[in-house]
């Protein structure tokens, strides 16, 4: 028997470094790329982060969450608050695109991730007691509560949201964050520790019978997933330059869910493809934009009826014929 020892070489780390290099290279040439294409690329990257992070919660750990846009909102507001309110005080006369500005943005993105992770912790706790559709509802309710709270919080713009957010989001930041999200989730779920996510999803009672703490795994999944959703939110705000509470509503959460379902729950590669596809689709379908949501809906139902394990599930189950 040939043992393929996947863990012997730190290939994933190499991959991450390459991706970061590519991100830097890409941004060096970004002024030669058509701005429209850049925008699409940034949109794709942000959606990849969202889909991959939701996939950790919903796909690998089986905690079906309908509140991912809520985490994104927390991150978007946290990051915008840092650059809008803290930025002018910390770096009053920074050169545009210079080191100081990028350092500030890094700080803003980290704050976004941490704030969202904290929210993830708060939502993760009810998930300890609930499963399936009840959990879906609580996460949905959580997303709505965040929205209502933001709408009522005047220091952050209330229902009108925040405007004039500096356009710090570049291709580099997006590609680097997406690479990091893929790397973290990918490494995690492949490790012995991370197999526990799947074990908890498959059977909580059996998981605790082999010494895994399902509660801990679920909370970890929520915290890490929310962290990256927060970063995606931060990138989104500094890309669009304006955010409103209603931009992070239930429909936004559903869009992310559709990506994960389309790609196949727990299938990182498929989910990335789906995020790309679903970001490009509206661009292609611009002439029939009003049909977009109907199309999403039909896609979702058709998938569940015809290909419940996702569009990109090519791995034929290695099954043993019963002897």
């Amino acid at each position: 028997m040939i043992k393929k020892n996947e863990t012997a070489v730190p290939k994933p780390l190499l991959g991450l470094l390459l991706a970061l290099g590519a991100a830097a290279g890409l941004s060096a040439f970004s002024d030669r790329i058509d701005p429209y294409h850049l925008d699409v690329l940034i949109g794709v990257g942000i959606n990849i982060i969202l889909a991959v992070s939701l996939n950790l919660i919903g796909g690998h750990t089986g905690q079906f969450s309908l509140g991912h846009a809520g985490f994104m909102a927390v991150g978007a507001y946290a990051a915008a608050a840092v650059t809008l309110f803290l930025g002018p005080r910390l770096i009053p006369d920074a050169a545009p695109g210079g080191f100081q500005e990028n350092a500030l943005f890094l700080g803003a993105l980290l704050s976004a991730g941490l704030a969202a992770a904290l929210a993830g912790l708060l939502v993760g706790i009810p998930s300890l007691r609930l499963r399936g559709d009840y959990l879906a509802l609580v996460t949905l309710g959580f997303g709505e509560i965040i929205r209502v709270l933001l709408q009522n919080f005047e220091p952050l713009g209330g229902a009108l949201g925040l405007n004039g957010i500096p356009p710090y989001t570049t291709v580099f930041w997006v590609v680097a964050s997406a690479a990091l999200a893929i790397y973290v989730v990918g490494c995690l779920v492949r490790s012995t520790y991370g197999l526990g996510f799947k074990a908890v999803r498959d059977d909580e009672i059996a998981a605790s019978a082999v010494g895994l703490d399902p509660a801990r795994y679920k909370v970890v999944a929520f915290v890490i997933g929310a962290f990256f959703a927060g970063i995606a939110g931060g990138l989104f705000g500094h890309f669009k330059m304006t955010i409103t509470p209603s931009g992070f509503d239930f429909t936004r959460s559903i869009e992310i869910v559709v990506m994960v379902i389309l790609g196949g729950l727990g299938n990182t590669f498929g989910v990335i493809l789906a995020a790309i596809l679903l970001t490009l689709l509206p661009e292609v379908l611009r002439p029939v934009a009003e049909y977009r949501l109907v199309l999403y809906a039909v896609l979702l139902v058709a998938l569940m009826l015809l290909r419940p394990r996702g569009l990109f599930n090519f791995r034929l189950g290695r099954r043993v014929s019963s002897s």
Binding site: V257, I261, R292, A297, L300
Partner: peptide, 13 residues
């Protein structure tokens, strides 16, 4: 559950 969400979206859209 996902199917139900799909049907819901379909009716809305």
């Amino acid at each position: 559950l996902i199917t139900a969400i799909g049907v819901s979206l379909f009716l809305q859209a």
